[in-house]
Design a binder for these strands. Structure first.
Length: 611
DNA sequence: CCCCCCCC
């Protein structure tokens, strides 16, 4: 090796500490040694190639740098490797959140040594404050950073004399960073954040092992981030973080967010670890509760399916707690639906899951402000809560007061349009009947809906032509959301699921009815909600009526026949006693609204004429 | 280091 492999001691110091506009620094072409070359995966969803992070030594100090991506091939073809000595021919410094990030743009490799040269020490990567402030370009501080700095300093001079400003937190934990400024490239920072959501502690066990974890959502003025703690850190930290409170947090790990599993708008997420420092902050200036970007319910049609948004609305209807069985896991999951309405004249269904569904016990018609809710396309548009979604009930914000005022004065009497019948129709409440999927009963048969393994869904307009008259209802467990059939014993009505005996049952409808349209006829199954619509009274009342006044009961049953209803049905193959047939269940039912349906027909006619 | 966000 004929090249001189002597390192340029002092180069790291000059690169990191010299004034940024001192161009002489960049003319320096030092000999350095690469102590480490590590691939850094590009943040998910940002596209672009991966990058390489270098540890550069001048024999006295070492610093971090990034290799310009156009030089990636030098790593990949082995030209640049660990312990090689090279001339930094061209490099530059970007200031990223008060840190100098060195980008290596051109190198000439001189050789490689068997061992690390010298005894290099880490060079503190923090810029002198004056250098940052004098940054001549002014472009390397993000707008959010500037805004954060501005608001922070205004709060200092804002006469908050009773709340002493938190001491300088620079120390070895670093300055207070806006959430937006966090990145894996620096680790000395403190954030000042509100915990807007904290999960339960979750245990897991899989092939790779077992453990426990919890996660929470942290928020400041600039953004939000998910933070997760595992195992020992769960014990240390779970009780120290409370929903709604504000904390200083430092020494957490910044990881790339796995977008597939996080619905927050942040490229990163935090790992809370054993040495993570958390300190409650009583000065809550400049830490908002939740930052909303509300979408009117009408505009949900423009929000792509499976993305999240924020809405504020009146919870016009609260449905009972029920449950579903997850197709993927087979687990039973509590569910509750709310019907939301707002001033845009639309109504949309919102589903709460699990604990959120169980805990929702608000009566009446509150204002709900929802952050990070998932948009679905069931019935045109629907909303579904993630566990990271938050709901504030009657929040003390301007939009909520305005909505309350509108609803109490006019909105409660208004008719609302749903996204399901928005096409072609101009008013009315479709409530889950998807007009674009309207089928005649003959079409249902011709298309063999329900004829495959998976269910098919369709909507039809039918007239009730017959109803099975016996066993219209069954005695059910009165526990909300249970609905299990109970059996009478000497002690009362026993529910096997709840393992309880009740004084009396809650009767629930279980109906078999014949529906017809101008093309054909089908037998349909319907449960309690169908009976409620057709009979206009709970099954308990109908049962009492049967005992009390047989004539009135008979006439009530008779009135069901010839009712015209719009229904949304689920067609699914079933095998019973070696016979396979298709069962049609009514998911949703709506009495015909002649005004709405006439308008719909007129619209269809107009479209037909135009074509 | 989990990872499901469900159903009709």
């Amino acid at each position: 090796m004929d090249e001189d492999l002597t390192l340029s001691s002092g180069a790291c110091l000059r690169i990191m500490k010299a004034p940024i506009d001192d161009s002489s620094t960049w003319k320096l072409q030092p000999n350095v040694q690469f102590l480490s070359i590590k691939q850094v995966t590009n943040p998910a969803g940002q596209g672009g190639p991966d990058r390489y992070r270098l540890i550069i030594s001048d024999g006295t100090h070492f610093i971090q740098a990034m290799l310009a991506t156009q030089l990636n091939h030098l790593v990949e073809n082995g030209t640049i490797k660990k312990l090689c000595v090279a001339v930094l021919e061209k490099y530059t410094a970007n200031i990223v959140q008060n840190k100098r990030l060195i980008i290596v743009m051109n190198v000439r490799v001189l050789g490689v040594t068997a061992e690390k040269l010298g005894n290099p020490q880490s060079l503190d990567n923090t810029l002198p404050a004056a250098t940052t402030n004098n940054n001549p370009s002014g472009t390397s501080t993000t707008p959010a950073q500037q805004q954060f700095n501005a608001t922070t300093s205004s709060s200092v001079s804002g006469g908050q004399s009773s709340v002493p400003q938190q001491p300088q937190r620079a120390g070895d934990r670093g300055a207070i960073f806006p959430l937006e400024g966090l990145s894996p490239f620096q680790n000395k920072w403190t954030i000042k954040v509100r915990v807007t959501q904290k999960s339960e502690i979750k245990q897991w066990a899989n092939a790779k092992g077992d453990g426990k974890l919890f996660s929470c959502t942290l928020m400041d003025e600039t953004g939000e981030i998910k933070a997760t703690a595992f195992n020992q850190a769960v014990d240390d930290l779970y009780d120290r973080l409370e929903e709604g409170k504000v904390y200083y947090i430092s020494r957490a790990r910044v990881n790339l967010a796995k977008k597939k599993f996080s619905h927050l708008s942040n490229e990163y997420e935090l790992g809370l670890e054993r040495n993570t420092e958390i300190e409650e902050c009583r000065d809550q200036v400049n830490v908002p509760t939740v930052k909303y970007t509300f979408v009117p319910l009408k505009d949900l049609e423009n929000v792509p399916k499976d993305t999240t948004c924020d809405v504020i609305a009146i919870a016009k209807e609260t449905h009972d707690l029920s449950e579903i069985t997850s197709k993927s896991t087979g687990k039973t999951i509590p569910k509750r639906e709310l019907t939301l309405v707002d001033r845009s004249g639309f109504s949309v269904r919102l589903t709460l899951w699990g604990e959120q569904a169980k805990k929702y016990s608000t009566t009446g018609q509150p204002v709900v402000a929802i952050k990070g809710v998932k948009v679905g396309d069931f019935g045109g548009r629907s909303l579904s809560m993630y566990s990271s979604s938050t709901m504030a009930i009657n929040p003390d914000i301007t939009e909520a007061h305005a909505l309350r005022g509108w609803f109490d004065s006019a909105g409660s009497e208004a008719n609302f349009q749903s996204h399901s019948n928005a096409m072609g129709s101009s008013s009315g409440s479709g409530g889950g009947i998807n007009r674009s999927e309207m089928k005649t009963l003959q079409q249902v048969k011709d298309l063999n809906l329900g004829g495959s393994d998976k269910p098919d869904y369709f909507s039809s307009r039918i007239i009730v032509t017959h109803m099975r008259n016996e066993n219209l209802s069954y005695p059910a467990c009165p526990v909300e959301g249970c609905n299990r059939k109970v059996t009478e014993s000497s002690e009362g009505w026993r529910c096997e699921r709840c393992d309880r005996t009740h004084d009396k049952p809650e009767y629930r409808y279980i109906l078999t009815l014949s529906g017809a349209d101008y093309t054909g006829q089908l037998w349909l199954q319907g449960f309690n909600d169908v009976g409620m619509v057709l009979f206009g009274m709970p099954a308990n009342e109908l049962k009492a009526l049967e005992d009390r006044d047989k004539d009135a009961y008979d006439s009530t049953l008779k009135k069901v026949l010839s009712q015209i209803v719009n229904v949304n049905c689920r067609a699914k193959q079933e095998t019973f006693n070696d016979t396979t047939r298709i069962r049609y269940g009514i998911n949703r039912i709506q009495p015909l609204d002649f005004t709405v349906d006439t308008e719909l027909v007129l619209d269809q006619l107009a479209a037909f004429v135009q074509n």
